[in-house]
């Protein structure tokens, strides 16, 4: 076999807000009862992060858990650990109704970083991105231009964005164009 490749092949832009491909990322969609003890513990075992509450993003380093819906979390972990992770989930959740699938290759993960990153996203997503309304630690599922996206902030100037693999180029070009167009000056800089 050959090494897997990400949809964006490491694309990145220069500029005060930079858009970049974050490369291969392990992603497991896990659906089930989020309050179920064994589900919480297997998620914690795999990522080190606690089960996220409503609209939360919980991280331990690069690994993390995103609240996707009342019965779904997205597990973020190293790409190479997915098969092992799925096996562990199957074992831990045996006999409990759930669904776990590898979606690592179905998605692209982009990063938008810089002093007006928040405004770059607000140009494209029909949501309230004011720092009071959307701080780091939350996850938002909405539209970016004309495609579905999930986004969260790793710090005050950095967004990570997940979209479907097939539209990764569109998402990248859209974000790059919005970053190149410069700041709006609406949100306090660096928030």
């Amino acid at each position: 076999m050959s090494d897997p490749i990400s949809a964006l092949l490491g694309r990145e832009t220069q500029g005060s807000v930079q858009v970049s491909d974050t490369g291969l990322r392990g992603m497991i969609t896990l659906r089930g009862d989020l309050s179920y003890g064994k589900m919480k513990s297997i998620c914690k075992d795999l990522t080190g992060a606690a089960m996220p509450g409503l609209r939360e993003a919980q991280f331990k380093g690069e690994n993390g858990l995103l609240w996707m819906s009342p019965d779904e979390v997205l597990i973020l972990l190293p790409y190479a650990d997915v098969a092992d992770g799925l096996a562990k989930i199957a074992k831990a959740m045996k006999g409990q109704h759930h669904l776990a699938v590898n979606v690592s290759d179905a998605r692209a993960v982009l990063q938008v970083q810089g002093p007006f990153a928040r405004e770059v996203i607000a140009k494209l997503a029909p949501v309230d991105l004011h720092p009071d309304a959307f701080p780091p630690g939350q996850v938002l599922r909405t539209r970016l231009g004309q495609i579905a996206a999930a986004l969260w902030m790793t710090d005050a100037q950095t967004f990570q964005i997940i979209c479907f693999r097939s539209v990764a180029d569109y998402a990248f070009d859209l974000l790059a164009a919005s970053a190149a167009a410069g700041p709006v000056g609406h949100f306090p800089r660096g928030t």
Partner: peptide
Amino acid sequence: PHCDRMVDETDL
């Protein structure tokens, strides 16, 4: 009611 947030019609 599932996300407990206001959502534009265009996301629905």
